[in-house]
Amino acid sequence: MAQATDLDRRWIFLAMGVLVVGLFASGVSSPMPVSRYVSDYYDTIEALPEGSVVMLSADFDPASAAELFPTYQATIHHLMRRGIRVVNVATWPAAPPYTRKAFDAIAPAYGREYGTDWVELGFKPGDDVAMAQIGQSIRTTYPRDDRDGTAIDQLPLMSEVGDSFEGIELLLTMSAGYPGILEWIAQAGGRYDMTMLAATTAVQTPDLFAYYPTQLAGFCGGATGATQYLQLVANSAGTATIMDQAPLDELLAVKEKNQKRMVIQMWGHLLIIALIVLGNVLYFRGRKAVA
């Protein structure tokens, strides 16, 4: 017992640091088998007719971007490639810079135009109340877009979207916590019978299994789900007509990076399991010595 508590925790920090940095430098990567949850996320988007309108909510910030932004980028590729149009909102104040950057980089490469193929409504304060308000009246909630203050009825895409999610086929959220997927399910999924998909941080993922597949058609959980979805989108990228190759090359690079991250995560998990075993061995030895 005494040995376990005496170990300076900086040795543990050092071990984890060396492991992560060393593996990043080594560049070892590994593909992942795709789970049915991620497969359903992909298939639900694939099943949408071309020209459908979806709402994509960015409910994350930089702290969780490492887990969620790759899925966000891959989702935009997937939607734009399939000619699905996007109403883009955010319930976290730090999300819009990510969303704008991602859409501006990816959508034009597929020949998509702002206003016709995607709109950027931006952040709305109010958490679940803001979600309920979007359901009641998207025009009252967002009279103008977040890009340059255009009245949303002047945006061609919004002429096809009524209030109370009319005209919106699917609701997707990239959710890092509160407010996020659970609040969207309560405020939109249940009340307006919306089909929903989510990408969540690993820590939030266990909450989702109780909602799958009735309230949630599919989900990408943490870096694991992101890697699996990136594989699916990147592997089917060859079927797309793309006007600018650069964003697609970036997607392939993101997929490679995530596959490297999964190997790092594997060693990190093994280190944690080894530390748990070591801690318990020292604990029981100490107890035996005391007895």
């Binding site: 170990l7 925790r9 543990i12 530390l275």
Partner: peptide, 12 residues
Amino acid sequence: AFYIASAAFRAF
């Protein structure tokens, strides 16, 4: 990541 590793050793 660092704190979880340390907590795994000490608390679990």
